[in-house]
Design a protein around this nucleic acid. Structure first.
Lengths: 239, 239
DNA sequence: CCTACCGATCGGTAGG
DNA sequence: CCTACCGATCGGTAGG
C-alpha cells in the first residue's frame, strides 16, 4: 500500500522497506511525477502564488484532493522541484575535479556543462531563482551553502589558472560571479526555436567566459584550446 | 486641485494644466512617492502577489483607501514601478552614442554604467525581472521592444569593434546576451555591506565584459584602456 | 458642495 | 482518491 507516511518531499516516492518497487509504488511515483511536471510548468508560467492547485488538478483532469494525496501541500511540491534543481546542479559541479587538468580546459568544460543544464532545465532554473522568497528560511540556508560550494569550485579553477599563468584576473570572486551571471542568464533568453543550438550556445558562452579571464600573453590566446571544444559541427537550428 | 482624473500610472502625479505645481499637487505627488517606495521594497521582499495592500498601508500608517485614492489598483502601482525602471534603463542607454568613439572604451563605459544602475536600483531591477508575468501582455511588448533596442546598441558597438579590429567575436548576438547576463546578474548577489564598492564592481565587471570580446592581438591587450577606467582609487568598503 | 480620506464590509477565491 | 465543504484572507469599494 502506498502512502507510508511520506516525509516532506521525498523525491522518488515512498519505498516500503528495502524491497524493490512494487507496481503500486511505481504507480504512485508515476502520478507524483505527472503532478510535478504540470506544477513546474505552471509555476514557471504563472508563478508559485498565482498557480492554484485547482489549476494543476484541472490540467491533469483530477481533483485537488488527488494532489493532496501525493503531496503534503503546495509548498511541498515546490520543495521537491527546488531539491531536484539543486540536485542536477550538484551533479554537474560534482562531475568535475577542479584539481586535475589544465584550468583553461576545466573552466571551459564546466561552463559548457552548466550552460547546457541551464538551457535544458530552464523552467526549473527560472523557478529556482524567481521563487526563492517562497522557500522556507532553513532550506534557503542549504541552497546558499550549495551555491557557495559551487562558486568555490569555480574560484579554485580560476586561482589555479592564475598560479599557472594561464589566467590573469584582478578579483577571482568577482570573476566567478560574473561568469555565473553570463551562464545563468541564459534561462531568461534561451528559446528552443531560436537561432542557435544548445551545443553552439553552451560552447559560445564557455568561450566568452574563458576569454574574460585568460591571460593575453599566453600562446593559447584568448580562445579556448580546440581540445576543450566539442567536435560538433556548426549545427544551426531552424529559424 | 489634485486628482484631475489621473490616467493609469502617471509618474509625476497630476499637474492641473500648464501651471507650476501647487502645494496640493506637490503633496499628492509626495504621498504617491511614499507609497511607491514602500511598495517597491515589499514587492522586492515578498513578491507582488504576496504583498497585500494592507501591508503597504500598514507600513505607512494609513488605510487601504488612502492607497486607492492615489493609485487605481495594485497593478497600477507595479505598472508605475516597472515604467520607472525602464525609464532609468533607457536613460543609461540613451546617454551613449554608439557611433562615436572607440568601441573598446564605449563598451567599457556602457557596461560600467549599466552595472552601476543594476547595483543602485537592484530592488527595482529584481522586481522588473521577477514580476514579468504580472505585467499585462501589451506592456510586455513595450518592454521587449526596449530590451531589443538596448541589445541592438550593444551589438552595434561590438560590430563596430569587429570592423575596427579591436574585437574578435564569433557571434555578436550571443556576446551581447552573455554580457547582459554578466551585468544584470549583479542584482542577485550585490550586497551594500559587501567586500567591494559599487565603483570597483562596476569597473571590474566592465573589464571582464571587454576582455570577453576583445581581440588578443591588439596592442591594447585584453584590459580596458586606462582612459576608460575611472580614476577612483581602490576603494574598499567595510566588511 | 467639494476635498480628502476612514471604518467597515463586499464578492470572490485561496489552501486545506 | 472524490464530494462537499471550512476558516481565512485577498483586492477592491460601498456609504458617510
Amino acid at each position: 500500500m502506498p502512502k507510508p507516511k511520506k516525509k516532506s518531499g521525498r523525491t522518488p516516492g515512498p519505498r516500503g522497506r528495502g524491497d524493490r518497487a512494487g507496481i503500486r509504488t511505481r504507480l504512485f511515483d508515476f502520478k507524483r511525477e505527472q503532478i510535478l511536471e504540470v506544477a513546474e510548468r505552471l509555476f514557471y508560467e504563472r508563478g508559485f502564488r498565482s498557480t492554484t492547485l485547482d489549476a494543476i488538478a484541472a490540467e491533469l483532469s483530477v481533483t485537488k484532493p488527488f494532489i493532496y494525496y501525493h503531496f503534503r501541500n503546495k509548498q511541498d511540491i515546490l520543495h521537491v522541484l527546488v531539491q531536484r534543481t539543486m540536485q542536477r546542479n550538484a551533479e554537474v559541479f560534482g562531475g568535475i575535479n577542479v584539481e586535475q587538468g589544465r584550468p583553461t580546459e576545466l573552466l571551459h568544460e564546466l561552463c559548457r556543462r552548466i550552460v547546457f543544464l541551464v538551457i535544458n532545465s530552464r523552467t526549473s532554473i527560472a523557478m529556482f531563482w524567481r521563487e526563492q522568497k517562497e522557500v522556507p528560511e532553513q532550506e534557503k540556508l542549504v541552497m546558499h551553502a550549495a551555491k557557495q560550494r559551487h562558486d568555490g569550485q569555480l574560484q579554485r579553477i580560476i586561482e589555479r589558472g592564475i598560479a599557472s599563468g594561464e589566467f590573469a584576473v584582478d578579483d577571482p570572486k568577482l570573476a566567478v560571479l560574473s561568469i555565473q551571471g553570463m551562464i545563468n542568464w541564459a534561462y531568461t533568453w534561451y528559446r528552443p526555436d531560436g537561432r542557435l543550438s544548445p551545443e553552439l550556445i553552451a560552447d559560445g558562452v564557455a568561450d566568452l567566459a574563458v576569454r574574460a579571464v585568460v591571460a593575453v600573453s599566453r600562446a593559447a590566446g584568448a580562445r579556448a584550446p580546440e581540445s576543450a571544444r566539442p567536435s560538433a559541427p556548426a549545427r544551426i537550428q531552424a529559424a
